[in-house]
Write a protein that binds this DNA or RNA. Structure first.
Lengths: 335, 335
DNA sequence: GACGATGATCGAAACGTTTCGACCATCCCG
DNA sequence: CGGGATGGTCGAAACGTTTCGATCATCGTC
C-alpha cells in the first residue's frame, strides 16, 4: 500500500509538503500542488487511518449505540441507523455500530481506546445506563430521545408533547369531541421507552384542557390485537368519531382492513391521524394524515451537534423538533 | 488517557514487558503479571486503537456493506446487520457500517486507508459491483448471497435451491398436486436480487420433475396486493390445496387475514408453508410451518470465514447452509 | 541597498504501540 | 564446575502520519 513517502518521492518533495498540500493547512505553490495531486492519483494514495488517529488525535469515527429492544419497530430503527450513517458521512465520518449488549459495554471499550471521536445514542429510554456512561466518558455526544435526567447531555428529538397537542387540536378544530388514541404494543410502555408515553400524556392532558372525551389503549400486533384494541376503545368512547394512531405500520394497516370489513368509511364515518410515524402513509388505502417522525432530521441534527462539540464548546442542551402536520385527506369535519 | 507508559511506570517494569504481559506472546513471571494487571485496572488502561492499527497492522474492524434497497424487508435486513455485529464481537472485532451509496464507494475508501481488516457484503445481487471491488481490493471478505460469478469469492447463503425442493416435497409427500407459490414484491425480482429467484426457479423445476401443477405470483404488500395475488394464483391453479409463501411478514399476515375472512381454514382447506422467512411464524394465527432463513447462521459463518482468511490462506469457496423444516401444523395430507 | 514580511519548502519530533534482538540470572546436565 | 538451554526482562526501532520551528529565496519599502 502506497504511503506518504511514496507520494513525496514521486512528486519530488518532502513528506511534510505532501501533508500540507493535502490538508491545505499551509500554502503550497500551484505547480507543486499539481505534482502532488498527480502522484496521489497515480498511486491511489489514501492516508493510513491508524497513523492519522495516532498523531492527529482525530479518528473520524463515530460510535452509534443502537440496541434493538423487543417491541421496537425494526424498520423505524433501521431508518435511524441509516440516517446517522448518512449524516456522519457529510462530515467525513464513519460509523461504528454497537448493538445489543455492546450498545453499553462496547461504548466504554471504544471510547477508552480512542477509537471514536464521538457518540450517538439511539432510542434512549427515560432511565438509561448509557446516559450515565456518556457523562462519565466525557466525549462529544448526542442523544436521540429525552431521558428524564438531561443534565450535561445534548438531546434531540421530535417534540412529542407538541405532536400530541397538534393531533388533538386538528380534530377538535373539526368539531370532534369523542376521540380515541391507539398506542404501541403494551411492552413499549412497560419498558419506559419515552416517545410513546410523552405523546400519550400530552394528548390526554390537552384533551382534558379542551374538555373533550378521549380514551387510550395500547394495541398488540396482528388482526386480533387490533380488533380488540378498537373494540375496547369504541366501548370506552361511545359515539367515537376520530382515532389517532401512534403505532407501527402493521397495526395501522390492520386497522384499515378492519374498518373496511366493517364498512366504516374513512374519513366519512371515522377520522384518522397517523401520529409520529416513521413510514410513509401515502401508499396506504386510504392515505392517512400524518405527523411524521423525521428520522433524518433528528439524526442529522444529532450528528451536527456532535460535530459542533468536536469543533468547540457547545453547551449541552435539549433540542426539540417541531412536528408538522401533513394533510392527506383522512380527517373530515364532524357532521 | 492513560497509556502503556503509565502502566509500566505504575507497575515498575518496562513498556515491552507490559505489552508482552497483555498479549501473552512471551512468558511473564506470575508476580510481574499481577502487578501489571493491577496497574491496568487502576488506570483503566486500554491500548490506543490508532497506535495498535499502525504498528500491529491489524485494525480489529470489519467493514459491513449493507445497502438497503427499496423493496428489501427492513426487519430481515436489520437481523443480518445485528448478527454480523454480534458474530464479529466474538472475535474481538468491531463493525464499521457502510450503507447506501457508501456501501460501494466507502468500501474502497476504508480499505485503501487500512481502516478495516476484512469485509462482509450483505444482500449481494446476481450482478453486483461490490463483488468486483472485493476482488480488486484483495482483503479477506465474505459475501452473503450467491452472485452469478463466484470466482475468487467466499460466499455463504442458505441453500435456496434445496429449500425450494424441500418445501415442494413436503407437500407432494402429503399428496398435494396443485400448489401455488406466492413470492416477494415484483420489484425484488426485477432488481436481480438472487435469493427469491433461486428459490422460485428450483421450486418450479422440482414441480416439473414431479409432474405436479404449480404457479407462481409475486405479491405486492397490503391487503389489496395480497388479495390480487391469491386470486390470480387460485385462477392459475384450479383446485389448489397448498400454498408456499416466500414473502415478508406483512404479506403472510395479510394472507392469513384474507383466508379467515373467506372461511378458508388452515390446514384443513389449504396447507401453508412459510419458506425462507427471517421472522418468527410461531406467533401467527395459526402458526405456520417454516423453513427459516437463519440470519445468525449465515452471518456467523461469514464472519468465521473472514477470520480464517485473516489467520491464513483459505481457498475461496461457496458454502451453502442446509435448510431445515419446522413443523408447526400448518400443512395436512390432502383428503 | 539594507531589512522585515511573506511564501514555499524542509527536517525532525512526536503520537502509542508491537516486536526483534540482546541481556542476565538461573538451572540442569554431563 | 563449566556451558548450553531456558525464563524473564529490557531497550530501541519501526509503523505513517501531523505539525512545529527553521531555512531560504523573493519582494516591497523606507
Amino acid at each position: 500500500m502506497a504511503n506518504i513517502h511514496d507520494v513525496a518521492r514521486v512528486a519530488g518533495v518532502s513528506i511534510s509538503t505532501v501533508s500540507y498540500a493535502l490538508s491545505g493547512k499551509r500554502s503550497i505553490a500551484e505547480s507543486t500542488r499539481r505534482r502532488i495531486d498527480e502522484a496521489v492519483q497515480q498511486l491511489d494514495y489514501r492516508p493510513n487511518a491508524g497513523a492519522r488517529m495516532l498523531k492527529g488525535t482525530k479518528t473520524n469515527i463515530l460510535a452509534l449505540s443502537a440496541p434493538l429492544h423487543a417491541g421496537t419497530y425494526a424498520p423505524a430503527h433501521m431508518a435511524f441507523v441509516l440516517s446517522v450513517a448518512t449524516a456522519a458521512r457529510k462530515f467525513d465520518y464513519d460509523v461504528l455500530l454497537l448493538t445489543q449488549d455492546e450498545a453499553t459495554s462496547g461504548l466504554r471499550r471504544v471510547a477508552r481506546s480512542s477509537l471514536v471521536d464521538g457518540i450517538i445514542l439511539l432510542d434512549v429510554s427515560t432511565v438509561d445506563v448509557r446516559t450515565d456512561l456518556v457523562r462519565e466518558l466525557g466525549l462529544p455526544a448526542a442523544v436521540i430521545g429525552i431521558p428524564s435526567d438531561t443534565a450535561g447531555l445534548t438531546c434531540v428529538d421530535l417534540d412529542f408533547e407538541a405532536a400530541g397537542v397538534l393531533s388533538l387540536r386538528r380534530l377538535t378544530e373539526q368539531g370532534h369531541t369523542r376521540i380515541g388514541l391507539i398506542g404501541q404494543v403494551p411492552l413499549v410502555y412497560e419498558r419506559g421507552s419515552n416517545f410513546p408515553a410523552r405523546f400519550r400524556d400530552s394528548f390526554l392532558a390537552e384533551a382534558e384542557r379542551q374538555g373533550v372525551t378521549v380514551a387510550f389503549v395500547p394495541s398488540d400486533e396482528g388482526a386480533a390485537g387490533v380488533r380488540t384494541a378498537f373494540d375496547t376503545l369504541s366501548a370506552a368512547v361511545p359515539g367515537m368519531t376520530a382515532v389517532v394512531l401512534n403505532s407501527n405500520e402493521s397495526v395501522q394497516v390492520a386497522l384499515l382492513e378492519l374498518l373496511r370489513q366493517r364498512g366504516i368509511r374513512v374519513p366519512d364515518d371515522l377520522s384518522l391521524i397517523s401520529a409520529c410515524s416513521s413510514f410513509d402513509t401515502a401508499h396506504l388505502d386510504p392515505p392517512l394524515d400524518i405527523i411524521p417522525l423525521p428520522a433524518d432530521l433528528s439524526c442529522t441534527r444529532a450528528v451536527e451537534l456532535t460535530m459542533s462539540q468536536l469543533a468547540g464548546a457547545v453547551d449541552p442542551h435539549v433540542e426539540l423538533i417541531e412536528p408538522t402536520y401533513v394533510d392527506l385527506g383522512s380527517t373530515a369535519p364532524v357532521t
